[in-house]
Design a protein around this nucleic acid. Sequence first.
DNA 1: GTAACTGCAAACGCTTTGCACTCCC
DNA 2: GGGAGTGCAAAGCGTTTGCAGTTAC
Lengths: 140, 140
Amino acid sequence: MDDQEIIELFRENEFKVTAQRLAICKFIISREDHPSADQIYQELKIDYPTISLGTIYKTLDLLEKLGIIQKLGFNEGSIRYDPDMELHINVVCSNCGKIYDYKAENVKKLWSDIISDLGIKPKGQRIDIYYECDDCKERN
Amino acid sequence: MDDQEIIELFRENEFKVTAQRLAICKFIISREDHPSADQIYQELKIDYPTISLGTIYKTLDLLEKLGIIQKLGFNEGSIRYDPDMELHINVVCSNCGKIYDYKAENVKKLWSDIISDLGIKPKGQRIDIYYECDDCKERN
DNA sequence: GTAACTGCAAACGCTTTGCACTCCC
DNA sequence: GGGAGTGCAAAGCGTTTGCAGTTAC
């Protein structure tokens, strides 16, 4: 998704295009590690010194409504933002919180089987695997 | 898991057996809808009028450490407690938050394939499907 | 008897809200 | 020019913490 596509998506949905929104949207799309609101804030503050956490949260809600990102609530109460809306598995280090995505064709087949078995119209899904990453293993 | 087993598990791990702990543990095991801490509090208050939310939280942490329950953080920031530690799918109404579990044999096979593909030692997992339940559909 | 547990209240951290100012269109 | 968006600070809410009193063992 390039700048132009983002701008068009905003305009189509009658949201104004602002520097902050563009920056937040581009940032989250460029990251594969599902950052938290505060991580986004800390990094964008460098280039946009007056940006506020409130704006980050409002924009993230907007991006979720537009279907660009997915919120992921975790057990310690933290919320992370995932720009991958396709069926995938979040591989999560339960120690440091690092996340990467895993895609497997076989998941798709199984998933459609389950859906038809359940007889529901799914609105979304979330699949996590928790493990301890190599960095954390070394540290202990 | 009956009373005696719970008591033994507590003692084995050198935790004292109190009326509150037993009540919380039995309550959560008996429920299939993954209640929140406050729901547990509201219901137990009837039989244990002096029980406090602090005790609920402390006990839930303890039960998680003992491996009896699993915490599930959701997108709106809420945390729900799931007493089913086996591989299963949480079927979640994204409107009212109702949850029920779905177990399928075929998930297990796929899961072990994915694990060996990833080459990791999983510590746990979580699989959610979001949909709108019949009650909520009617209401709209 | 004593260390662990409970209940209460205060503290905490993340998220949301309200409002005056600003800026996109 | 006008209304949506921003930034700031305050409020909100679920969870955690600290501590004096209580209870299991």
